[in-house]
Amino acid sequence: MRVTVQEAAFDLGAESNAFAAGHTDMGAIVTFTGVVRDLPGDPLVAMEIEHYPGMTEAALTDIATRAQERWHLGDVLVIHRYGRMAPGEPIMMVATAAPHRRDAFEAAEYLMDFLKSRAPFWKREITANGASAWVEAKDTDEDALDRW
């Protein structure tokens, strides 16, 4: 298991390849990547992500550990960035390796659902007209936890 919180961009291909390498008993690798999305109408200039150093790493490790306890996984990877990033840049990724695809898919969804509303990150969007607003948490994100 690897959990990384970093400001720098990461190479999705290199991270995915490194994660997939070295297992001969894992039949399924699932990766999910979150990307800064431009906004229709009012173009996004940048996204800024604030986090809580210390608690962030602990919360991500706890979420990944719970996933490993719940599903049959060979490995878990979580990378999450903070700081300023432009539209199209990757924000974060999770990867799961499992003998079979159902465990890999479900664990990746679990990681994403908890990472959205239980890891101490706060996003702010800066748009071309100069507006800057904190992204509000959605009720649907909180509701998504109930299914687990």
Binding site: Y52, M55, M92, L115, K116, R118, F121, K123, E142
Partner: peptide, 10 residues
Amino acid sequence: VAFFPPMTGG
């Protein structure tokens, strides 16, 4: 002790 709004990770 830390106070903050609901988190928006991912």
